[in-house]
C-alpha cells in the first residue's frame, strides 16, 4: 500500500514534470496570454470570495466585476486560439488582426460593464 502510494505520487510528479516540459515549449506570446488569463481568473475568484464574505448587496457591481474578469479571460482564450500557430483553422488569420479583434471586443465589453457597474 505504502509502495503503491509512493509510486502514485512519483507518477504524479512524473506526469507534472512531463506536462511542464511540454508546456515550456509553448511560444512566449501564448504564455503571456495564459498568464493574463490566470490573472483575470484569480481576480474573479477574489471577488467571489469577497462576495461570500460580505454578502451580495451591490449585486450589479459584483456581477459586473466578475463578468468583466471572466469576459476578459474568455476573450483572451479566444485570442490565444487565433494566435496559436498549431491551429490550422486560423492559419490565414494574421495575429495582428486577432489582436485588433481582441482590443475591440474588450472595449465593447467594458463599455457594457461600466454601464452595468452602477
Amino acid at each position: 500500500m505504502a509502495r503503491s502510494s509512493t509510486s502514485t505520487s512519483k507518477d504524479a510528479q512524473d506526469l507534472f514534470r512531463a506536462l511542464w516540459s511540454a508546456y515550456s515549449a509553448t511560444p512566449t506570446n501564448l504564455k503571456i496570454i495564459d498568464l493574463y488569463v490566470l490573472f483575470a481568473i484569480f481576480t474573479a475568484l477574489l471577488q467571489v470570495v469577497y462576495m461570500a464574505l460580505v454578502g451580495t448587496f451591490p449585486f450589479n457591481s459584483f456581477l459586473s466585476g466578475v463578468l468583466s474578469c471572466v469576459g476578459t479571460a474568455v476573450l483572451a482564450v479566444c485570442l490565444r486560439i487565433q494566435v496559436n500557430k498549431e491551429n490550422k483553422e486560423f492559419k490565414d488569420l494574421a495575429p495582428e488582426r486577432a489582436f485588433a479583434d481582441f482590443v475591440l471586443c474588450n472595449l465593447v465589453l467594458h463599455l457594457v460593464i461600466m454601464n452595468f457597474l452602477g
Partner: peptide, 18 residues
C-alpha cells in the same frame, strides 16, 4: 488583495522575459 494577481501577472511577465 486584488492587486496580488496583478503583481503575479507582472512577475510572471518578467520571468518569461517579456
Amino acid at each position: 488583495l486584488i492587486l496580488l494577481p496583478f503583481i503575479g501577472f507582472l512577475v510572471g511577465l518578467l520571468r518569461l522575459g517579456v
